[in-house]
Design a binder for these strands. Structure first.
Lengths: 163, 163
DNA sequence: TTAAATGTCGACTGATTTGGTAAAGATAAA
DNA sequence: TTTATCTTTACCAAATCAGTCGACATTTAA
């Protein structure tokens, strides 16, 4: 299935854009700072999100990014399949051109696994996820005096690849 | 989620052992030949399957491998988590020690994704998969004069990493 | 007791992927 | 024309992957 850093970053970026949806264009630097991502690396991810019609970009002064569709119309599958080369677990499922399909004892199992993961990812929309995040945030701030978390800069929720 | 060749091979090996379950010990060379796997590489996978209590090995002459449990008691999750280092999609979900949990806009989504994938993989037992495979095989042989496929050597159901 | 048939373990390696940096450029507003 | 913004491409070090290899341990049969 191969969820790399691209998927992790892409989800953060998309959640960030959804969180600011309707509040105008969001700049590359700001998104990157809020989500703790290297802006240079973010460029690669943005290029893919744009190519797949998930975000719109405006160049020049006052430029920036925004979602191209409503958060409810964007699924986790859309996001991950936009940024990952091969999201399917194994090659033979991905290109559907496996010559040994009939003889491979594992082929159908992989097809099944690939299918169910896709189904579950399609079920989950950015809109739903954002709602859960906002509910959680509201509860947190109700019990503390922290400023709204969305204004804090975040750093990457992850250590080096191997613990 | 990171399904590498280890998962692909492990599934083939376990399906093979399930297919020959009750027919005595299966030798390393035979399994490898039937499933089109390098025996040397298979050693690494076998070590993990054994360490996780999925297969039993007997050394010396007349030695070999067999399943340690009934195919119905072995799930895809058991197999994949035995051979992969990090089966979870992202680090912060895997080690549950993420300090930024409360501030990460994506954390709960990853937790959800990891959970549902695990649930679906646990649902799928080697017994069920084997049954489907055997049904398929029966239908195939009913319409052709090919010898039973389980006796044919197989080669890996996959090309080079990049098409 | 020895030889043969098996599984076990760890070191090593070339190729690929990953995750990132950087430089030069395009575009639009001020 | 300057400045702020996104775009594209090239490049790179480090890690991972998918093995290969060799030495070794164990059991049985001759």
């Amino acid at each position: 299935m191969n969820f790399t850093a691209k998927s992790r970053y892409a989800l953060k970026i998309m959640m960030d854009l959804a969180d600011f949806n309707g509040e105008g264009l969001q700049q590359r630097q700001k998104i990157a700072a809020r989500q703790g991502i290297s802006p240079d690396f973010m460029d690669h991810i943005m290029a893919r999100l744009r190519a797949h019609g998930l975000v719109t970009s405006i160049r020049g002064r006052q430029g920036g990014f925004r979602l191209e569709k409503s958060p409810d119309e964007i699924s986790l599958w859309d996001i991950f399949s936009a940024v990952e080369e091969g999201l399917f677990p194994v090659q033979c499922v991905e290109d559907s051109g496996c010559q040994l399909e009939a003889q491979c004892i594992a082929h159908d199992a992989w097809l099944d696994v690939a299918h169910i993961i896709q189904v579950e990812l399609v079920k989950r929309s950015l809109g739903d996820l954002l709602k859960k995040w906002q509910d959680k945030k509201d509860k947190q701030t109700a019990f503390s005096l922290l400023p709204a978390l969305k204004l804090q800069e975040n750093s990457e929720c992850r250590g080096p690849r191997r613990a």
